[in-house]
Every structure is written in C-alpha cells, then in structure tokens.
Amino acid sequence: MESADGVRLDLGPRMQRMVLALLALEPGRIVSTDRLVDELWVTWSRPARPERSRRTSRTCAAPWNLAARRAPRRRSC
C-alpha cells in the first residue's frame, strides 16, 4: 500500500492487516479483544488454549494502538 504522497507503507503480516481492517470498520470506537478473537480466528483454527488466541490478537493490534496514541487528536467543533 502507498500513502497519498507515494511512500510505501508496511502494514505488517496478514493477521495484523486483518486487525487494521477490523479497526477501520469501527472508526472512533473501541474494539474489544473478544471481538478481535472472534473475527480473526474464523479464518484460522483457534489455538487449543484460549489465552493464546487473545494474546496473539492483542499482539497484532499493538502497532495500531500505538499509532493511534501518537496520532494528533482531532478537535470537534
């Protein structure tokens, strides 16, 4: 993917891109870990231990959470 000014953007591996897509579908809203787990693990078989699927989902969401915290806040009128 490229930015508007032509800079190539690395959106990470497949599951991380799926997290970004899920977050983009809910702009301005919090997406729970449970929802991420439910949505992500439809595609892949869920690990035998539920805590592992939750940890993996949080790991995939971490870069986007960090980017959101660093982004400038938009002021409402």
Rank of each mutant, 00 (worst) to 15 (best):
S3W: 12
W64V: 00
A24G: 02
E26A: 14
A21D: 11
W41H: 06
R46G: 02
I30P: 04
M18G: 02
R29M: 05
S32W: 09
P13A: 09
I30Q: 14
A61T: 04
A48H: 11
L23W: 04
L22Q: 06
R46A: 11
R75K: 13
L66K: 15
R58M: 12
M15T: 10
S3P: 05
D10M: 06
R55A: 15
G6V: 02
R49D: 12
R70S: 13
M15D: 02
R52F: 07
Q16D: 03
P47K: 03
S76G: 08
D5K: 13
L9A: 13
L9K: 01
D5L: 11
D5M: 11
R74V: 15
L11M: 11
A4G: 09
S45R: 05
I30W: 03
A61R: 04
T33Y: 07
N65S: 11
L11Y: 05
E51R: 14
A61D: 01
M15I: 09
A62Y: 08
R75P: 06
L36M: 13
V31Q: 00
W44T: 04
R14G: 09
L11K: 05
R29T: 12
R35D: 10
P47Q: 06
L9D: 04
G28Y: 08
L36G: 05
A61N: 06
T59A: 12
A61W: 06
R17A: 04
I30H: 13
E39S: 14
A71V: 02
A24Y: 00
L9P: 03
C60S: 08
R46V: 07
E2I: 03
L23V: 05
I30S: 12
G6N: 14
G28D: 10
W41Y: 12
C77I: 12
G28T: 07
R52V: 14
A62S: 11
E26G: 04
R52M: 09
R46P: 03
V42E: 07
R17L: 03
L40Q: 03
L11V: 00
P13K: 05
V31H: 00
S53Q: 08
P63W: 09
E39Y: 02
D38P: 03
T33V: 15
L40D: 02
L23Y: 05
L11W: 04
V19P: 00
M1I: 02
V19K: 00
E51A: 09
C77Q: 10
W64S: 01
R69W: 07
